[in-house]
Computed example of a mutant assay.
Amino acid sequence: MSPRSSAAPVILASDLDRTLIYSANSMALTGSDNLAPRMVVSEVYDAAPLSFMTRAAEELLAAIVEQGIFVPVTTRTQAQFARVQLPGAGRGYAVTSNGAVLLYDGEPDPGWSHHIRRSLAGHCAPLSEVLAHLTGSAAVPGILRVRTAEDVFLYSIVNRHELSAGYLQDLAAWCHERGWSTSLQGRKLYCVPVPVSKETAVAEVRRRSGAGLLVAAGDSRLDAGLLELADIAIRPAHGELHSDGFARANLMVTAASGVLAGEEILRFMSGVLAESMSPVAGVPDAATPAVC
């Protein structure tokens, strides 16, 4: 990492689900229950706790939001993101809807929304055409339900065992011809207009904020572009990118997986932030995950 001006703030952009916050089923805890880390609830849905992080992770994040520009970056819609309660919630920038919506102090930025609409109109087939392709005569039994997000992109709940590789390749080619991309992640198949991406929105936040160093974290294929954009990137040792063996020169991989990887990511970001404020900037030696 090259030295940066101390006057330029550091931007720390992170995916949420299975990067910083975890459902009960995704924690991947091992060992005796009495040795489990202390947890805090990060999301409540239908009056029940849904997502968690370790207490140590929340404390690390609380310090990070006071020292750098922390940007939550998620494929969640605005309504889904609003359920997540993290330190600094409602302050500064946040990216939702995979980059289609840029929030500032909790409100959508109208200039960014106009930019997205103009980009889609000029380069992409309308959402209705892609929706009709997924649900009309070309529909296959493996696609169980199709949902729209912010009237910008689509995601389908799928039975992966009933989706052939040939169908996914044909769908990807069909979407590509119309300015869309596809991504299969777990039981969700995303169809997203190419101009809508996490990295494009984060690049805009970086431009507006005048930030220097960009540190990013994510676990899914929709995070790949963000990790490539970053000066320093880190991903957990789980998720689609881990299964893909995703590796870059700027990329670190956590030693832990599951909810403890989220804590490790924030500890690493905290170390980078502290190092950036020292006279000689560099990746911190302490708690540095393995280079991938």
Rank of each mutant, 00 (worst) to 15 (best):
P3S: 07
R4V: 10
A7D: 13
P9S: 05
V10E: 00
N25M: 11
D33C: 09
M39P: 12
V44L: 12
T54C: 07
L61H: 07
V65H: 03
Q67V: 09
T77M: 03
Q85I: 12
L86M: 02
A89M: 10
A89C: 05
T96G: 10
N98M: 06
G99I: 00
L102E: 05
D109G: 07
H114M: 07
S119A: 15
L134C: 09
A138E: 13
P141C: 07
V146H: 06
T148P: 15
A149E: 07
L154C: 01
I157Y: 07
A165Q: 15
D170S: 13
H176N: 13
R178T: 11
G179L: 04
P195F: 11
S197G: 11
K198P: 05
R208K: 12
S209K: 10
G210P: 11
A216D: 08
A217V: 10
G218S: 09
L222H: 01
D223A: 02
E228Y: 00
P236A: 01
G239R: 06
A256M: 07
V259M: 04
A261P: 12
F268T: 04
L273W: 02
E275F: 05
S276K: 03
V280P: 13
V280L: 15
G282H: 14
V283I: 14
V291D: 09
